[in-house]
Computed example of a mutant assay.
Amino acid sequence: MKPSIDNYKDLITEVKNQQNKDGVRNYFPWFKLSQTLISKIDQLSENLVDSATYLSFKEYLQLFTNVVSKFEETYEWSYTKKLIPIQMPFNECQSDYIINADGYKAYKLFFFTAFFLPLDYEELNKSKNFLNLKKVKYETLSSVYDKLQYVVEDVKEASEKMRKQERRSIEILAIFSAVALFSVV
């Protein structure tokens, strides 16, 4: 089952509630959600001529804009706090392998990289910039299609006026032809 816009909205509400509850503004759910929305919006953008698809595109774009905004906000929070998102308990960072040395107690190997993984904020900043570029691209695409819809409606109105004008011209021409035909007779 593919998630609907309501599923995404529910997920966003759930993430907001959890972050408000524990006070940790983790950027990661917003980052992953924005990546998921990119694939959905790219899929929708292939057929914007269809009005139902276009309306769906606009809804997803609004959702994407909100998610990117939350990602930027939580990224800044994480960056200023120098948040370390992964800190497993000490015993989970030890290997199952036990080292027995004569005369000493048994030791387990400790994997320090499992205990502490710093974030690469430069890479995250590149991702943030990429998401902003995508947002601008989608907003531009939406703006172009909005303007295009007005142009199409104007063309339809002009076409309808021309049809009515042509019909009047033909009716007037028919009346003059009838008058000319009866005056000759």
Results as ranks from 00 to 15, higher is better:
161 K>T: 11
64 F>D: 00
133 L>Q: 12
17 N>T: 15
14 E>V: 04
47 N>R: 12
119 L>I: 13
104 Y>M: 13
170 I>R: 15
41 I>F: 00
69 S>M: 04
38 I>K: 06
56 S>H: 06
1 M>W: 02
135 K>P: 07
165 Q>F: 06
109 L>I: 07
179 V>G: 05
173 L>M: 15
6 D>T: 10
179 V>C: 09
184 V>A: 10
122 E>Q: 14
120 D>P: 06
177 S>C: 09
111 F>C: 00
61 L>M: 04
179 V>N: 12
1 M>H: 03
32 K>L: 09
8 Y>I: 00
66 N>H: 04
73 E>N: 12
21 K>H: 09
65 T>Q: 05
42 D>E: 04
137 K>E: 11
49 V>H: 09
61 L>T: 02
119 L>W: 12
146 D>G: 10
70 K>Q: 12
115 F>P: 01
84 I>W: 01
157 E>L: 11
102 D>L: 14
122 E>K: 15
35 Q>D: 08
15 V>I: 13
4 S>T: 14
161 K>C: 05
39 S>F: 03
129 N>Q: 13
105 K>E: 07
178 A>M: 09
122 E>A: 08
98 I>V: 15
147 K>A: 07
110 F>H: 00
49 V>G: 08
56 S>P: 00
106 A>G: 06
61 L>P: 00
162 M>R: 11
15 V>K: 05
137 K>G: 01
153 E>A: 15
88 M>R: 14
112 F>W: 03
12 I>R: 02
91 N>M: 11
126 K>T: 09
40 K>A: 03
166 E>M: 10
46 E>K: 08
12 I>M: 08
46 E>G: 01
136 V>W: 02
124 L>V: 12
157 E>I: 07
161 K>H: 06
28 F>W: 13
159 S>G: 06
19 Q>R: 14
96 D>H: 11
182 F>A: 06
39 S>G: 00
183 S>H: 01
140 T>L: 05
134 K>Y: 07
54 Y>L: 12
122 E>L: 10
91 N>D: 14
180 A>G: 14
143 S>V: 02
105 K>R: 03
63 L>T: 03
61 L>H: 03
35 Q>G: 12
93 C>A: 13
149 Q>C: 08
108 K>E: 04
29 P>C: 06
134 K>T: 00
174 A>Q: 15
79 Y>H: 15
78 S>M: 12
163 R>L: 04
183 S>Q: 04
107 Y>R: 02
112 F>A: 09
94 Q>I: 04
35 Q>I: 08
107 Y>A: 03
140 T>N: 12
117 L>D: 10
78 S>F: 11
30 W>I: 02
167 R>M: 10
